[in-house]
Design a protein around this nucleic acid. Sequence first.
DNA 1: TCGAATTTGATTACGCTAACAACAAAATCA
DNA 2: TGATTTTGTTGTTAGCGTAATCAAATTCGA
Lengths: 420, 420
Amino acid sequence: MVRIEHGSTHEAVRRHNLSVVLRQLHLQGALSRSELAARTELNRSTIKALVEQLDSLDLVVEGDLDLRGTRGRPSTMVGIRSDQVVTLAVEIAVDSIAVAVVGLGGHVLDIRRVDRGTDGAAGTDVDDMLGTIHALATELCQPDRPVVGAGVAVVGIVRRADGFVHVAPNLGWTAVPLGELVASRVVQEVLGYDVPVSVANEADLGVLAEHTRGAAQGAADVVYLSGEVGIGGGIIADGRWLTGARGYAGEIGHMPVNPDGLRCGCGGRGCWETEAGERALLRLAGDANRPDAPDAPGRRSGAGAVDEIVTAARGGDPQAGYAVGEVARWLGIGLAGLINVFDPERVVLGGMYGRAFDVLEPTLVEILKDRALTPSSGTELVPAALATAAPLVGAAELAFTPLLEQPDRVMDALMNRRSQ
Amino acid sequence: MVRIEHGSTHEAVRRHNLSVVLRQLHLQGALSRSELAARTELNRSTIKALVEQLDSLDLVVEGDLDLRGTRGRPSTMVGIRSDQVVTLAVEIAVDSIAVAVVGLGGHVLDIRRVDRGTDGAAGTDVDDMLGTIHALATELCQPDRPVVGAGVAVVGIVRRADGFVHVAPNLGWTAVPLGELVASRVVQEVLGYDVPVSVANEADLGVLAEHTRGAAQGAADVVYLSGEVGIGGGIIADGRWLTGARGYAGEIGHMPVNPDGLRCGCGGRGCWETEAGERALLRLAGDANRPDAPDAPGRRSGAGAVDEIVTAARGGDPQAGYAVGEVARWLGIGLAGLINVFDPERVVLGGMYGRAFDVLEPTLVEILKDRALTPSSGTELVPAALATAAPLVGAAELAFTPLLEQPDRVMDALMNRRSQ
DNA sequence: TCGAATTTGATTACGCTAACAACAAAATCA
DNA sequence: TGATTTTGTTGTTAGCGTAATCAAATTCGA
């Protein structure tokens, strides 16, 4: 693929500045006009004009004065229309499906989640799942509330360009054109007009969420690990979300770490998630105190069982402590490689790694001190901040991207589509 | 680190367009004005003005007409002043030191290389090495030829911000402020004025070179592997050179691939370069037909010995074939992990992997088919195109970066400095 | 409580830059 | 040789951010 670098024109400047202002408000919620001027290094006059345009697009509201008690004339506050401009966020997880309406600024206005096999929700059948999403979206959507886009988080390998799910082992899916399906059988039917539908991997959206509103805020280089049934990974490099040439980046679960390890479903041996994933923890802790059979197909996530083990380890249980220690060791060995490859500013641990952060950290730090080449003080290790909300928040963020990049175009196009 | 997104102004637009035009010419060598207009999507009038400004900065020349025989008035060709605007490129390798004068457009105008221990060149002592570089640079530099920057490639872990070499195991260095040293004891003394000095890891500059002028041209997502004494790595992600938060990114040599492998100098066990590096190949092929003792300190690179083994493998020698096969196997196992993490469009193999590409490829392809999750047809595997020139070309490219980004500022500043 | 100082909003004029339009120039093609 | 096509050149226009100025609204100090 050859990239041609284009020149800039007036409109590009305007659009960029409009985008910068809107993004600031999206991230901060509300700012005074003078603060906007300071952050963007733009002139007061320019900010006024930009805010007026955003106002005319129904994206922001100019409200009260900024009453902070500083001297001088107080500045006008500019707020986000978080209730008037929303996206639809969908999460297709292993054991549940969730749909949320997320307002500009990242506010989750409403959310519905159903577990698989309950509430009439489907198993992993694609059609049933679309039906579930359709039903949830219908409940949530108010006809007068404009929706600017939809984002879908799914536990699978997703092609960025069109939301084609190449494979989703934990759902039993192969070759599902999820983007098209959601567009035609959910968005178009529920809303009555088309909006862009973006699909991405759950962990990739996790890092996007943590970077925008969670534990990775302000960090330009981030590695995010999410311990669920497998190990998911997402990366921010140089301030940008890394998705790879096709969108498959961040598939770290099957990095080889132990050639003598157990066989993995992918055909390899000693993959990272075989050694440091949820099943490894359950296996190492022994099956006695755990009701689930860890290898039963279609089983529900062992989150409850994992938490029991972690609690036991905190309480001094030797078997649980051993299991946690081993998982931490293999986690650290793989993580050392990633740190050497990316040199991240911060590593964010989500999923079960986030919940068990306190018991994992000591071992991790020790392993990394040995194995990571970069000065050890360089990389921060922190737990995720958004917990289970991360994929939905990330999906919403992804769906907001076109609006944030081209506020005027997206809103104009939306007006046309809705009025038809 | 908090990033503030700034707005754009007139000057930013002008600078961007100036930069885009100059970069096109830097990459293509010469283009007609109408081609420039087409590529940049800028107006004819604008291109004229921009080219005139670049001409007044002594960066380009307007020359003959474009005589391609198409109908219509022929367009004026715009060429690069490759002989008038140059950078100094320095390579500090394990067994040699090289200095080159590289003109705009990437033309290597002149080059001097000395092996360590010959020609009065130093071993690995920092002072001696600076002396060598000083001598070579003095020979190469013509006083009337303006130098806009200097770039240094070094086999070590380098902090991007200031060119501080944290550690360079193969040179025996620790904590060497190489950027400062080259600036004060080479550039300032040889040229008589200051220019920015940038330092980076050899493999990182390798991928920059291959991406700009080699086998990775046009690819937005690239993984580059260089097999030398160790394994060096460089990454292009989403069209951008990836250096990490501090500049240590791409240190893939010590990724753990085999916990039962040999001890590595880094303290780990079964690091990638222990299993798939030069020493592994020499070890696996047996020592009988090789004069060098592979583990003698300060030894010269075993490039010759490696090539002997590769040639023997091509000829059907079973021992050599086994050694090459094992190296390919471990190389593939590690590479599968990298492919899953980055989802690159292209993987470029340099150093000994490039020279042995034909004998490595079959095994690599087989391993990747098994181990890499992404559709196997997705990622291209190609040998490097620039061979030993890559680090110097990359260093020059790095040194040209400020000029390409802000042509007017850099040239004005240079004028002032040289006239003092 | 009142005036000075400070900071911001609003308005207008200005400068910079790219685009546009019209015409001239230089080639190909029939 | 004339029609056609493409590009260079020139003057004009439009868009956008900035600077300058004045008015407005607050805090601070006496």
